[in-house]
Nucleic acid binder design. Sequence first.
DNA 1: AAAAGATTGTGATTCTTTTCACAAACTCTG
DNA 2: CAGAGTTTGTGAAAAGAATCACAATCTTTT
Lengths: 216, 216
Amino acid sequence: MVMNGKKIPQSTISRLFVYLRELTELDKINIRTISSAELGERTNLSDAQVRKDLGYFGQFGVSGSGYAVGELKNALNNILGKDKIWNVAIVGVGHLGSALLAYSGFDTHGLKIVAAFDADEKKVGKKFLDITIQSIEEIKQTVKKKKVELSILTVPVGKAQEVAEELVNAGVECILNFAPVSLNVPENIKVKDVDLSRELETLSYFLAGKNGNNKK
Amino acid sequence: MVMNGKKIPQSTISRLFVYLRELTELDKINIRTISSAELGERTNLSDAQVRKDLGYFGQFGVSGSGYAVGELKNALNNILGKDKIWNVAIVGVGHLGSALLAYSGFDTHGLKIVAAFDADEKKVGKKFLDITIQSIEEIKQTVKKKKVELSILTVPVGKAQEVAEELVNAGVECILNFAPVSLNVPENIKVKDVDLSRELETLSYFLAGKNGNNKK
DNA sequence: AAAAGATTGTGATTCTTTTCACAAACTCTG
DNA sequence: CAGAGTTTGTGAAAAGAATCACAATCTTTT
Ligand SMILES: NC(=O)c1ccc[n+]([C@@H]2O[C@H](COP(=O)([O-])OP(=O)(O)OC[C@H]3O[C@@H](n4cnc5c(N)ncnc54)[C@H](O)[C@@H]3O)[C@@H](O)[C@H]2O)c1
Ligand SMILES: NC(=O)c1ccc[n+]([C@@H]2O[C@H](COP(=O)([O-])OP(=O)(O)OC[C@H]3O[C@@H](n4cnc5c(N)ncnc54)[C@H](O)[C@@H]3O)[C@@H](O)[C@H]2O)c1
């Protein structure tokens, strides 16, 4: 997380992807130049935040006029490693897993789903577009063969821990986990939780005005 | 966000839900007492973090032995407003929307899906369990009638902004947005983005060793 | 070409969140 | 019940992140 001796916040990285998304849109509609204020406006962030985030990686702007959309887009693509294509596996092809498997939007982000696994014999062998669902037993060899780097875990909550262990055992280092459980994995493994109930509940907590509106 | 004069981090709230989830599991298996260290272990957080988070809301522990699982569970249920049931609407019943609509796990979190909307005439009228998909035109009256408080936005990215505006217009104050776009809404409206491509990409960024491993 | 205007890049400041560290409070053991 | 062992609760310190603020730099205007 260090560059030019400065530490780069995790959240900066996440926002860079947002800037890049916006710049790609701007480029499409032939907008050539944009200020940090405008880019901030469009991404619901402050101008200072935009400039500081970009500042970690270099100087991309021009005083008095702003940033060249095309150039900045290219720079971010480069910084974020969007030149590379990442191989993704989905484990657990149920409601959520099949929605993700059917999603075409990953392509445009350099995310390529190369394999899908399920424990249900009835599902094994079925095809979704060009992906054939494989038995969970084949996970290790397939991860190796297809060079799976990222994994999406969409199995029932009760199976999540054991399947996560199989993933780790198979050599996968990154897991996007949808099961509402805290996975216990070695610390070199990166797990990112997506807990949808929690997101909704957190929203509701603040809606309830528990955040200081009704309590002193 | 103020209690006892102290500011409560947003992230603390989110973690309280994690503690609660864990405590509920512990309760099920008849574990009566747990220390902050153990609870932290199980949730991948530090003991100090656990204690500080709980400390915002009162004193629940017993020196020398830890926290009474049942009591703390009840306290958190209360703090987090889990006594209340929240009414949720899903807008856009495609791949993702229908996965969410079919998900039974929301129930146990006090989240009740009370309505679903889609613009596609072919989908309107279809039933998912006990929810009949309604036309998007009915959104305003239904939100009012069914007291919708939270909404899940799963429409194509190009439609997200306009549908978000319809939601706001219908009186919804919280939106869980799955479309990869920065929504522009009044500031009293709470939007939480779930951008799955971005989550995967952020994982991959760190996998790429761009975080200081290959750069000085 | 000078003056007015716009916008960047970044050190300094402020605000937020996490971690530390330890007295106080409790439990357990023989 | 005394002493050893745990564990909490919480100020204080440290770390992390966002915001401020402004000199420097570029653009536009006249
Ligand atoms: N569907 C949702 O909207 C939703 C929302 C929030 C959270 N989640 C969570 O996401 C996860 C998946 O949810 P879902 O609704 O898709 O569930 P699902 O039951 O529809 O699908 C789970 C799939 O995993 C497969 N599976 C079971 N054990 C397996 C194993 N050992 N190895 C490989 N595959 C296995 C099942 O055969 C099934 O196809 C769950 O943990 C759930 O709690 C889902
Ligand atoms: N499916 C995924 O795995 C996935 C992953 C990441 C992000 N997303 C995002 O989530 C959103 C939904 O994805 P999806 O795969 O479910 O798409 P989808 O095309 O399967 O479903 C979209 C649904 O929205 C409906 N719709 C269109 N316009 C509407 C309107 N004006 N009002 C109401 N409903 C309308 C469509 O009829 C369709 O049923 C998209 O923005 C997508 O980018 C999806």
